[in-house]
Design a protein around this nucleic acid. Structure first.
Length: 315
DNA sequence: CTAGGATCCTGTCAGC
DNA sequence: TGCTGACAGGATCCTA
């Protein structure tokens, strides 16, 4: 699923298009994708959007909020166009015609037919809803589609006042930018026998890191993902946090990463992976630092990409 | 408490 | 072509 940078990119996109929109009707196409009575959000206005780690909070009038978690394959698609063909041409032009992220960013401002978190497959611009659409939220000036192939994601209704008490939100650790290296070092000592990659994927340890940025941060710090968490020095912890911040910053600036199930707020594709990723999905290609071939291994049950030369188990 | 594995679900792809 | 198993930018639940 989208990780922190992708959710933040979606949030920024949706802020432009959904704030002050009023929800007219909610259609639930998959019962488990929408938790809570839909009637509670209908007739309410979108006041703003917040993000906690990978969770997106849509605050509504009437003291109601919707928590959206995209998990692995969730997407949010905002559609306020009446002419799909025009939209298709415009978005294809933006997605594939731009030469750099700066151009793509500039195009967001001009985009009038907007998408929010979509699907860059060949069928992306087909009619919505599609067979992966789980929830349709009709607003006065457009429609928000929640698509989710694997049904792991969800939209959950709760009082705004209780968002921070939600079990998931409440247990989140700080995001990398706000992590105290010494505290993280202590946590690593507590989980000393787990592979470091498994530990940094734990949202209760550091919020927002997922499989991409775990691999990127470990590469940045020159740490092998199978190293035991307890074996890291304080300096290595600092370097790891620095790597997480830098790769996420770069990704947010690039509009998120490109993936099969994620595109940016206006339907254009983020291009973090192809432009900035050092190791993720680069197996078989040379390391940018040393030229040795990047390999893919399995750590903590997840596909993991490393440079076997820059990231060693034993120093 | 930690550590590891199974699990939710659908789709795609490699290998018979 | 059709089957089968592995795997997938997540997080939780269950076991030991």
């Amino acid at each position: 699923m989208p990780e922190l940078p992708e959710v933040e990119t979606i949030r920024r996109g949706l802020v432009k298009f959904c704030v002050h929109e009023k929800i007219e009707e909610v259609q639930i196409l998959c019962a488990k994708s929408f938790i809570g009575p839909k009637e509670v959000v209908e007739e309410h206005e979108v006041l703003g959007l917040r993000r906690y780690g990978k969770a997106l909070i849509v605050d509504l009038s009437g003291g109601i909020s919707m928590m959206v978690h995209l998990r692995m394959t969730g997407q949010l698609v905002w559609d306020n166009t009446s002419d799909k063909k025009v939209l298709q041409q415009e978005n294809l032009g933006v997605a594939f015609g731009a030469e750099n992220s700066g151009l793509i960013s500039a195009s967001v401002e001009k985009c009038t037919h907007a998408f929010a978190g979509g699907h860059p497959s060949d069928t992306f611009f087909d009619e919505l809803p599609n067979k992966q659409t789980r929830v349709v939220i009709k607003m006065n000036d457009g429609t928000l589609y929640f698509n989710d192939q694997r049904k792991f994601g969800f939209i959950k209704v709760m009082p705004t006042a209780e968002v921070e008490q939600d079990k998931f939100i409440a247990s989140l650790a700080p995001e990398p930018w706000k992590c105290d290296a010494e505290k993280i070092y202590q946590v690593f000592q507590r989980k000393k026998n787990s592979p470091i990659k498994a530990v940094i994927l734990d949202q209760k340890v550091i919020a927002g890191i997922g499989n991409i940025y775990a691999d990127e941060a470990l590469f940045y710090a020159g740490i092998h993902p199978e190293r035991k968490a307890g074996s890291l020095s304080l300096n290595e912890v600092k370097k790891l946090l620095e790597g997480a911040c830098k790769s996420m910053d770069a990704s947010i600036n690039a509009g998120g990463s490109t993936m099969a199930t994620y595109v940016r707020a206006d339907g254009t594709k983020g291009d973090y992976l192809e432009k900035f990723a050092q190791v993720f999905r680069r197996e078989g290609q040379p390391c940018y630092k040393c030229g040795v071939e990047i390999i893919k291994i399995r750590v903590a049950g997840r596909g993991t990409h490393i440079c076997p030369n820059c990231q060693r188990l034993v120093a």
